[in-house]
Structures are given as C-alpha cells and as structure tokens.
Design a protein around this nucleic acid. Structure first.
Ligand code: ATP
Length: 733
DNA sequence: ATGATGTTCATTTTT
DNA sequence: TGAACATCAT
C-alpha cells in the first residue's frame, strides 16, 4: 500500500477542534451524530465529503480504532482523494480502510477465499477478459446467433448478478422470467461461471455477488465482519445498487452505524444498476434514521450555482432540495460555438493561455462525455506545450504490449488463468496457433480443467505434432516461474522480456512502433521497481493485485497540469476553472440516451455534475461538426443550453437566437458540399452530388461518379472540386 | 496448420 | 484509430 509509505511524518496535523470550527451547524450535527443510521442528503458543493472525512477523524479521536472504520466510495479516484484528506487530518488516518465497493469486496474475498473454493490468488477479470470467456463458452456450446452477440450474454449475466441470482438458480428463474436471458442464457451463465471457477477468477460483478452470498451463507464470516466494523460510511450513496445495499445491510451489526451522504441529482450510474431510491428512501430502509440536509453551497460562484440549478430543475424525477450560496455572483458563464472539434480544442488551449495568470494549469479541468474525445484535445495541448494529466481513457494497462507482458505475470501468479494462457500461448508467435489453441481449449472445457492443466496433459499424452512444441512452452513457463519466485521482482520484467524474446517479436510485427512499445515496457518495469522500493520483499502477485483494481493516471508533464477526464469521473472533484466540451445533442445528451425521459434526465444530471465542479469560472463549448471514427458528424448545440437563462452568460443576446436558427434549419450546418456541387473521392474519382441525406447526424451524399455511376458516400470522404472559401470561420457570439 | 494480410466493426459512461 | 475476426499463401 503506497499509503503507508508516502506519508509525510512532519506534517502538521490540525486539531479536531479547529477542523470542527470550519463546519456550519448542520454539518456539525452530522459529524457529531452518535449512534444509529444517518443520511446526509444535500446538493453539490455543500460539503458532504468534508462532513464524511471530518466524521471519520472525529470517530478516531473518540477512540475508535482505524480498523473499526470502513469508508466506501465509488471510484478509485474518490477513494484516493478521501484517503488523502483523512491522512491530512489525523495521524491514524492512513490506517482506515477506504476503498471502493469492488476493492473492499476483493480484499474480503481474498481473506476468505478458502470458504469459496478459490485461492487467495484469484484473478479479477475485466470486461475484456470476461467477454473472451463468454466467447469461448458460446463456442463450446455451439451457440451462434447474430441477434445476440456475446456482449448481450455478458450484460444479461451482469444483470443477473446484480440481482444476486446465482448461476445454479438461473435455469429455474429463466423459466419464470424468460426475458431476462437471451436464448440458452441460463446455460451460458452456468458454463461461464464454471469457466471462471476453473480459471480461479472472478469478474467485476462476482466480486460483489460472491461477497454477498458469502455473507448470507456463512455466519462465521458475517459475524467476523460485523464485529470488525463499528462504523460504516458511504460517499455518493445515490450510486449504490441493490447488491451493494444488501452487502451493507449484512455488514452492519446491531448498532446500525451506517452513515451515508449523497445527492440524487448526481446519480449518473443508473446504467450499471445504481438506484437513487436507496438514498431517497433511506429512512424507510433504516427505521429511525436521522436525516440531515445541507443547503449552502461553498464551492461555486453565484452564477454557476444558479445556472446549474436552472438546468437540474428541469428534471421531473428528483427529490426537492434547496441550494443557495453566499459566494459572489462572480464571472458569468462562457459559451462558445466552434466550427469543428479541432477548433474547439484550439480555442480552449488559447483561452487557457490567455488566462494563465489568473488560473494556473493545475486549477483547470477539461471535461467531456466520451473518452474518445480526449485524443483531440490532448493533441492540441501537446502542440501548445500545456502540461496535462489524463484520467482513464486508453489506460496504460490496456495497451497491447503491456497486456502481453501482464498475461505472463498473471499466469505466473495464477496458472489456471485461462484468459492469460490464451494470450501468452502464441505471443510471441511460437508455432502454437489457432488449431493448437482450439485443441487445448476443447480438452479443458470437456474435462473442466484450466488450459494450463490441459496443456500439461497433452504434453504427457504425447499428442503428435502438438506435444513437443507445447512442452517447450510449459518448460519455459516453469523456468520463468522459478525466476519470479526466487529473484527480486524489479528484475523480473527485463528478465521476462529476454526470456521470451519479446523485442524481436515487436520488431517484426510492429517495426514502426518499436521505440514506443519498448519504452512503455520500460515504464512498466520502472513501476514494478518503484513498487518494490515502497514495499520491500513484495511478490509479483502482490504488485499485480494492487495494479488490477487501481486505475492509473498518465501525466504528460510531471508538474501539475490541466486535468482531463470524463464527466463521470469528475464527480466529487472541484476546480477553479472548468471547460465542458461537446455540449451538443448527440454528446450531451448522448445520441444513445435520447430515447427515454429517464435517460435524458440522467444526461441532464451529468451536465449538472460537470457544471458544479467549477468554483470560479465555467466555459462550455460546442462544435458544429466533428470527426468521429472516420466520419464527419454534425450535431446542434445541446438542448440543455436553453435551460440556462441567458443572463447567466457573458454573451447573452445572440446565444438563444443562434440555437433556434440551427434547430429550424439543421441543413444549414452542411458545409461545402451541396446538391449539384462537383466533388472528388479518393477511389471513385470525380462526380456530381445528386442528393444529400442526413441520418443520425451523419451526412451522406449520393454522388454520380463519372466512372463508377451512383454511389452513396459519407460526406467526409468527399472533397469539393471547386475551391470554396477558406473553411475556418469563427463564430463569435 | 501457421502466420501474414486484408476487412470490418466498434465507442457512452466505470468497477 | 485500432483491435478483433476472416481469408489466403506458405
Ligand atoms: N462549512 C464550510 N465552510 C467553508 N467551506 C466549506 C464548508 N464546507 C465545505 N466547504 C468547501 O466546499 C467545497 C465542497 O465541499 P465538498 O467537496 O465536501 O462538497 P460535496 O457536498 O461533497 O460536493 P459534491 O457533492 O459536489 O461532490 C470544498 O472546497 C470544501 O472545502
């Protein structure tokens, strides 16, 4: 745990009294609440997180041991943040168990793994791994249908697990509720669980479900945990789902010391089962629960608070609540409609530079709806030499070369990890291709054993052709395993790279990316070394466990830079200045979330969360068109913009009229390609536009090509033959 | 049967 | 843009 070691022993720890002086009466009431369940229900920026951290410190001061306190958050980032705050406030802070639901469950499951038929070294499968497992299972069961791709099965299984529906009961259940699973879903579910069990692995939902089942079925474990935790505190409680709610109720002892804080307006995870009624109905779930409301926003300027309120008040499904602020009105909001995604990025970076004396880089966040949007702004930030750090997105551990090497590491700590086996088997290529894989897989499926075990059997059985090559692989695996068990882990990655001759493989397969990939691997090796320095004597498996549930942030430039992240991962954070990109119908609200009112309300909450991250200045941008995948997509400015009264904006007169004009005439967004204009296409050559269609924001043109006749083409593929006006207009509002 | 080459498809959000 | 999948030449 880095927490133990990064501690600054010279820090000045303020007295609890001083900390408590900084609370308003309602906050104090919450912090000082004695026994029994309590809920703090309050809007953004009202100090909920401050209450929860102060309460933890106060409990420590009262004499509760750190190990008796369990603090649960929703994201790793929030956990890290909270841990930091507690450490700053209490010398014992670093000993408190702060984690996400998933990481806490993983920890307990490892502790009690023997009660479950897993070893404590079980692997946690991420979504990709799980999907691969499902595919294998579907293949084995000979299920193939285009209506229900593997992903559908995975989703259904995830849903079942959220209902704590064990695979053994799935069959019976699916007879009663045939719609819950795709065809053969119950069988797939069962086989999938067998696959995971044989692999000594759990997927994300298993972490929650298995823990819940364990608590329900095993009174020893239940009593142990109930006695261990005297106080349970949950941040962002509106994001809990059914399983998590049940988990909590089983962990609570007779004192029911559950303290939760949350805001139904910030519920943005309903797509993964979050149920805001958990917080709205808290007092019904826990009789006699105390409810405390916080109504003063300390974070944001008056304009920001009011504008955000204006947006969220359009939601019909929300619990009424007050939110006001004493802060000055401050700057007005800034809205800007840009020509395309690139000019949006340019404008933001220019603006950051213009205002750099007032807002330093580390006080700025750039928020967006989808991870894919980050690439563009990253590009321009680099060009403008603005340091930044990015959360999530193409995570370091998701890169191909890293996953390759991690597959070996995983296989070493858990030889039954069949997903890792699949990957390691023929990377680098060693003559064990598809057919070999299939044979091993088949044997493992039919005998209910892991692929490594199957491979060893094949070696023993002297199967012609296969056995000798496979023996080499297994022997090499043993050799690497010996090394990993006997030598320092900081030497391991370099050793492994040499042992499997990975560099030569990259050289051959990705010659132009050699530098890049090798330097990433170097970074990986460095990470392991650093881990060993921090926790001397640690094993590879300990490092792997720490890494598997912890997201990493990538810093392009060490010293505090601009923060880039999705709206979702911004929850709970705050910045002096916030830019929200892509305020367009199609992004916010997202094109896939415009069908139902519920979806739209969640999108609105997402915007509300984004807006309320800003303390002093909030800038929002839209682009008329942007490149997505390979197409130009035209969206109009977000419908949510209209919910904000113009007087909160710095440039009021033109804004709403501009939006209206776009709504009346979406076709006016079409740029240089018109019916009748001469165009050219990279493969089809020259032609004339006959017709223009717009579906789902995608512009398609029917073109009559001189040499190829009529074709329907994405407008992004076409370029005008006649020189049109320079494309770079600016739209000052 | 392997491995290189070509084609298609996917992207909402997170643990 | 890239990774997963499918096809074809060794
Ligand atoms: N009593 C107070 N006096 C002054 N500032 C406060 C007070 N309470 C909280 N704050 C400040 O207000 C800001 C928001 O607090 P906090 O992050 O705890 O709010 P929150 O309710 O958790 O917000 P959100 O739900 O939006 O994440 C922080 O900068 C915090 O330091």
């Amino acid at each position: 745990m880095d927490v133990l070691n990064n501690r600054d022993f010279n820090q000045v720890i303020p007295s609890l009294e001083d900390i408590k002086k900084k609370l308003n009466p309602q906050q104090s009431e919450a912090v000082n609440h004695k026994n029994g369940p309590a809920v703090v229900f309050a809007g953004a920026g009202s100090g909920k997180t401050r209450v929860i951290t102060t309460r933890i410190v106060s409990l420590l001061e009262e004499g509760f041991r750190p190990s008796e306190i369990l603090a649960v958050t929703f994201t790793n980032k929030a956990a890290k943040e909270m841990r930091q705050r507690i450490e700053e406030l209490s010398p014992l802070g670093h000993l408190v168990h702060v984690g996400t639901f998933h990481s806490s469950c993983a920890r307990w499951l490892r502790e009690f793994s023997s009660d479950l038929g897993f070893t404590s070294e079980f692997t946690i499968y991420d979504d990709k791994d799980s999907l691969q497992a499902i595919k294998t299972v579907l293949k084995d069961l000979n299920i193939e249908n285009d209506d229900n791709p593997p992903r559908e099965y995975l989703k259904a299984i995830g849903r079942a697990k959220t209902l704590a529906l064990h695979s053994n009961e799935a069959e019976k259940f699916s007879l009663e509720y045939p719609n819950i699973f795709p065809p053969m879903g119950a069988q797939v579910y069962q086989k999938y669980q067998t696959y995971l069990a044989n692999s000594n692995a759990m997927d994300f939902s298993d972490l929650l479900m298995n823990m819940l089942l364990l608590l329900k079925q095993n009174s020893r474990v239940r009593t142990l945990l109930q006695e261990r935790y005297q106080h349970v505190l949950v941040d962002e409680y509106q994001d809990t789902n059914m399983t998590q709610f049940s988990l909590l109720s089983h962990i609570l002892n007779e004192n029911k010391n559950l303290f939760v804080v949350g805001d139904d307006d910030q519920s943005i995870y309903s797509w993964r089962g979050a149920n805001p009624h958990n917080i709205i109905n808290f007092q019904e779930h826990f009789a006699g629960a105390k409810e405390i409301r916080l109504e003063q926003n300390y974070r944001s300027s008056g304009n920001i608070v009011k504008a955000a309120q204006a947006v969220i008040s359009n939601n019909k499904k929300r619990a009424p609540k007050m939110l006001w602020t004493d802060n000055d009105l401050g700057d007005k909001l800034y809205y800007r409609l840009e020509f395309d995604g690139e000019s949006e990025s340019w404008w933001v970076t220019d603006h950051i530079k213009d205002e750099s004396s007032r807002f330093s880089f580390q006080n700025i966040a750039i928020l967006y709806r989808t991870n894919a949007q980050s690439r563009q702004i990253e590009d321009i930030l680099r060009k403008q030499n603005i340091p930044y750090r990015i959360y999530g997105s193409l995570r370091f551990y998701d890169r191909l070369e890293i996953k390759d090497i991690l597959a070996y590491c995983r296989l070493l700590t858990n030889s039954d990890d069949s997903i890792a086996f699949r990957r390691a088997l023929n990377v680098p290529t060693r003559g064990l291709g598809n057919k070999a894989l299939e044979q091993i897989e088949q044997l493992s499926m039919s005998k209910d054993i892991s692929m490594m075990e199957a491979a060893k059997e094949i070696v023993k059985d002297k199967v012609p052709r296969l056995s000798s090559k496979l023996k080499e692989f297994v022997d090499m695996y043993q050799k690497i395993k010996n090394f990993s068990e006997n030598e320092n882990i900081s030497d391991f990655i370099p050793y492994l790279l040499g042992a499997i001759n990975y560099k030569a493989y990259v050289q051959k397969k990705f010659p132009d990316q050699l530098q890049d990939k090798m330097s990433n691997l170097h970074e990986l090796a460095t990470a392991v070394s650093e881990y060993e320095q921090v926790s001397p004597g640690a094993s590879l498996s300990q490092w792997l466990k720490d890494v598997s549930l912890t997201e990493t942030e990538k810093e392009e430039d060490g010293s505090g830079g601009v923060s880039l992240m999705t709206l979702h991962s911004a929850k709970g954070l705050e910045f002096k200045k916030v830019y929200i990109l892509g305020l367009e119908d199609g992004l916010i609200p997202h094109a896939n979330s415009q069908d139902s009112d519920d979806d739209l309300e969640e999108e609105r909450r997402l915007l509300y969360v984004g807006m309320t991250r800003a303390k002093e200045k909030l800038c929002m941008l839209s682009a008329k068109k942007r490149r997505m995948l390979n197409n130009w997509v035209c969206y109009s400015p977000s419908r949510f913009l209209k919910d904000i009264p113009p007087n909160y904006f710095a440039q009021q007169p033109t804004l709403s009229s501009f939006i209206e004009s776009i709504e009346e005439n979406p076709g006016s967004l079409n740029t240089h390609i018109r019916v009748g204009s001469d165009v050219s296409h990279p493969t089809y050559g020259k032609g004339k536009v006959i017709k223009i269609e717009q579906d789902f924001g995608l512009i398609k043109a029917v073109v009559d090509f001189t040499d190829f006749g009529l074709r329907k083409i994405n407008s992004s593929q076409l370029s005008p033959v006649k020189k049109t006006q320079k494309l770079r207009y600016t739209y000052d509002l």
